[in-house]
């Protein structure tokens, strides 16, 4: 079934797509912060960024970004830093691919 998409919605989607490189940079920043923070790292800011990305990316049809953000969120809760860094790197790549 062909879905009708209004020009307004198309414009909003385009704007979101255009913001993906910025979001990739945001993830890159989180990777740098986490890599340099040592044991004193605070994961709440990373969790917040991922939480927003999980919600918004899925709404715009980027299911892979949303799912990966959610998986990475679980790593912040479970404090699995190495795995989290790997997930963030993958997330950054995904964002760049979709941009």
């Amino acid at each position: 079934m062909q879905e009708f998409i209004s020009p307004q919605i198309t414009a909003i989607r385009e704007r979101y797509k255009a913001s993906l490189p910025d979001k990739a940079v945001m993830i890159e920043e989180q990777i740098e912060i986490l890599s340099s923070a040592g044991a004193a790292r605070d994961l709440s800011a990373t969790h917040e960024v991922l939480h927003k990305l999980a919600g918004s990316a899925g709404m715009y049809g980027y299911d892979d970004i949303s799912a990966l953000s959610r998986t990475a969120m679980a790593c912040t809760v479970e404090k699995k830093i190495d795995l989290l860094l790997a997930q963030l790197a993958e997330l950054k790549s995904l964002l760049e691919q979709h941009a």
Binding site: S6, Q8, I9, I12, R13, R15, Y16, S19, K52, G55, S56, M59, Y60
Partner: peptide
Amino acid sequence: DDTDIADLVCMMLIE
């Protein structure tokens, strides 16, 4: 608070 989500949901509901 996320404008990306708010803009999209608003527009979809208004339509």
